[in-house]
Amino acid sequence: MGFLKDRYNEYGKGLQVTLNTMLDTVKPRKLGGGPATVQYPREKEAPPTRARGVIALREDNCTACMLCARSCPDWCIYIEGHKELAPPRRAGGAPRKVNKLDRFDIDYALCMYCGICVEVCPFDALFWSPEYEYSEPRIADLLHDKTKLGEWMETVPEAPELEAGAEKKKK
């Protein structure tokens, strides 16, 4: 008996684990089974709302203050801007000076996805989006300009609700 038990421990157990895993895999998802993997191009995994996939830009909010470009750890944000005169808010007032954004590029070949730029932005112009399908055949094509960054604004989700006991953020 001891002999059989030893043989089972040596060879049988591995086969049993394989069999159990296989049975789990063919079990329908409703019953808590299903494969652990996802067949990528046909099936897509939904990343969590906080996932740092790509940085989206709301161009109207940006004042070209350069805070994000300065705080980036590898300096992959390129900003150019100029000042423009806009019509006054009230009739008869003096014309306002506004900062106009000429260029806002992020080099995703350099970006480390740390999120410091999104955090330091004082005007809520930068957001994280969980979008991840933007690979390019050439590394130089990963430099994305403000129109492309603006398109990603559509994919930005609402911030998730916080766990019980958390303090509400004062804004």
């Binding site: 709302t49 740092r52 740390c114 999120g115 958390a166």
Partner: peptide, 28 residues
């Protein structure tokens, strides 16, 4: 880890004086 911090391998969630954000609901 990704659900709480946003990054799977490189969370960058710790800040001097605390954390970047609280946990999302349902995480516990």
């Amino acid at each position: 880890i990704e659900g709480a911090t946003g990054g799977r391998f490189h969370p960058n969630f710790d800040r001097i004086g605390g954390l970047k954000d609280d946990l999302p609901s349902g995480w516990v």
